[in-house]
Design a protein around this nucleic acid. Structure first.
Lengths: 365, 365
DNA sequence: TAAACTGATGTAAACGTTTTCACTGCGGTT
DNA sequence: AACCGCAGTGAAAACGTTTACATCAGTTTA
């Protein structure tokens, strides 16, 4: 139950000054070998472990990277986090993560994002913060890395996805299938990502000479539930489109549920394509745009570490853009040859109508 | 770029002592209103934010909860984390999370789990740590909460799931379906969870008078890949069982993929039941045992906060067990009436044989 | 042999807080 | 008039480190 063992305890135990003990423990060369051994033995014996608050206070370094996310219940962010964590660990750094509740973060001042000085660098996920806010934040001496949204004029490194090309590829694929009445489930207009992805769609449509039907652009929050209602509402009094391009996978899943409830099959009745390639997409057979999310996290962490190590002003405006590409599975109507797992429907359950009142039976093997 | 604003800066700015400024900022009543206003204005103007390392050093409190996980790429743990986070936030605390790489943590000493004194309490997920290790850890003055595994004799609060009853329910359900040749995909023998869940299976089998076939007990790591190979290997030279009970959802998904590759449908050819009720289970229509994972996280955080506030020795041995229950979807062969979304297969893609060489066509709406 | 260097250690200041204690006026009791 | 209490404030110590500087013994060098 006692309080933690300090340097003082160790020094008293071996009859040396705290300075010497500190030197041993931080690997300074200016110590006799015998002394070193003696100190290490004592430290081990007493179960010493450095007080990192004290160290941080003195050295002004914490070996921590701060990460702020809107939400952890989102596979995209979690995968990103894994990437950041991997890279941070490899460099002997640890993470200080703060995930949502998003709105709360919006009401904070720049300095509140700095974890009270407990971090050496900050990685931010697009939280919809205004540019001058970011500029203020970036000017406070803690290196800043932004993900997903470029911030011109802000001295912060940026890492983001090639959203335009990805969306273009997805839309082009549907157009090559021959579909023309294609609904687009796009994210909110104030999201940079959402706008970029939509730009990709537009580009493909223009290239194919398809004129766009504004009724088929469904704007919704980037979450399953919103997409579900949006699709639901449309289907209530319109014919289903030939295809739906959802600009993230969560929305694709929402649309899928709505389609099912209207008795529509994917891809026979309506083709469906997503964006992100979250884990579940593989199991569902969802054709989607693969994003190297984990690598993006790693890149962000590397950028942060790099910023901590350099004074080079150019580094503070570096921008890294990661490639995306389409993964063809079954939901678009293709039956690809190169991905055996997704060639079949996930669970071939009997339909409700056929078996509603049937008793469970032992199936033949 | 400058260094952060300190109390000293603020005090100099207003011509008062740091003591007074500190008092204002920590809400002490012994300050004149005029002074208070003046200080707050100055602090705001200068963008002051307290150095938490210094505060922690002085007060010996950090308002941080430490959490150690084997792995973040696991929906079970992530959901748990969300619960912990919610509860911690509600109490004005923050989290310091360390996830994997598991094996690295195994090689650390007890004091290395304490985040260098940067946490006020520690929540541990079963990392396979030996009892005397836990006892040492618990004796170091930082309140300890263990999840998933009771640790008799260790002064730590425990929160875990009712695994036995859950597994019993799942197995019973399959037995009520009439299945008798039921394979069990169980977790590793050194996992407490795995053993508990297996005990539940045994109990149900015994109650139904079914004698167990040791060939049908497949032991594998709690991950998709292991379950996939285990199932794969069995199907290579045996008849498929009538049903598979996977003792976590990741394993169920692994088994599902293996079954598909052997051309077997779920549930027509083989029934499948999982355990955990991860998010994806809903989309897949997987019948599984629902675990209140988030609530478990909340309970753990509450236990930690409680331990920090009390000296009551009994609290340090408190054990909380959360209920589980079966969620019936389609994968077991039932077609439940109460869950419209899961009554249909996730994506009704055409089978490979039918359409392999077909050109994409515009489907009729 | 004195001066200069070297290697090992100790001393003490500093990092930014919080908090105990002491001090100063000042109004109200005896 | 001497006393007390009290509200408001400041001085200073402490938390556990790291590190520049001082010390000191034992070399080496001139």
């Amino acid at each position: 139950m006692g309080r933690a063992v300090t340097l003082g305890d160790v020094s008293r135990h071996v009859g040396l000054s705290v300075a010497t003990v500190s030197r041993v423990l931080s690997g300074s060369p200016r110590v006799r070998q015998a002394t070193r051994d003696q100190v290490l033995r004592a430290a081990d014996e007493l179960g010493y472990s450095a007080n990192l608050s004290a160290r941080a206070l003195k050295t002004q370094r914490t070996d921590m990277l701060g990460v702020v996310f809107p939400d952890i219940n989102n596979e995209f962010y979690r995968e990103l986090l894994t990437g950041i964590n991997d890279e941070a660990h490899a460099a002997g750094r640890h993470l200080m993560v703060e995930f949502g509740p998003g709105p709360r973060w919006q009401s904070l001042r720049p300095q509140d994002y700095l974890f009270g000085g407990r971090i050496d660098a900050l990685i931010l996920l697009n939280l919809g913060l205004p540019m001058d806010f970011l500029r203020d934040l970036a000017g406070r001496g803690t290196p800043l890395v932004l993900m997903d949204r470029p911030a011109p004029g802000v001295p912060a490194a940026t890492v983001r996805l090639e959203n335009v090309a990805g969306a273009d590829a997805a839309m082009s694929h549907l157009l090559e299938h021959g579909y023309r009445r294609i609904a687009v489930l796009r994210g909110p207009g104030d999201s940079y990502d959402a706008n970029e992805r939509w730009r990709g769609c537009e580009r493909a449509l223009r290239r194919f000479g398809v004129e766009l039907d504004h009724n088929l652009i469904w704007e919704a929050g980037f979450y399953e539930a919103y997409a579900y209602t949006a699709t639901q509402r449309w289907l209530a009094d319109h014919d289903a489109p030939e295809a739906i391009l959802a600009l993230n996978d969560a929305m694709a899943i929402g649309a899928l549920h709505a389609l099912r409830e209207h008795g529509l099959s994917v891809p026979q009745d309506v083709a469906l394509v997503g964006f992100d390639d979250v884990d579940c997409a593989k199991h569902l057979g969802l054709t989607t745009v693969h994003c190297p999310i984990r690598q993006m996290g790693q890149a962000a962490a590397r950028a942060a570490l790099n910023l901590m190590a350099t004074d080079e002003p150019a580094a503070f405006y570096r921008e890294e853009v990661l490639d995306t590409h389409l993964i063809v599975r079954t939901s678009c109507g293709c039956v690809p040859d190169d991905n055996p797992i997704s060639q079949r429907p996930p669970i071939n359950a009997v339909s409700r109508l056929e078996k509603k009142h049937a008793r469970p039976v032992r199936p033949e093997v």
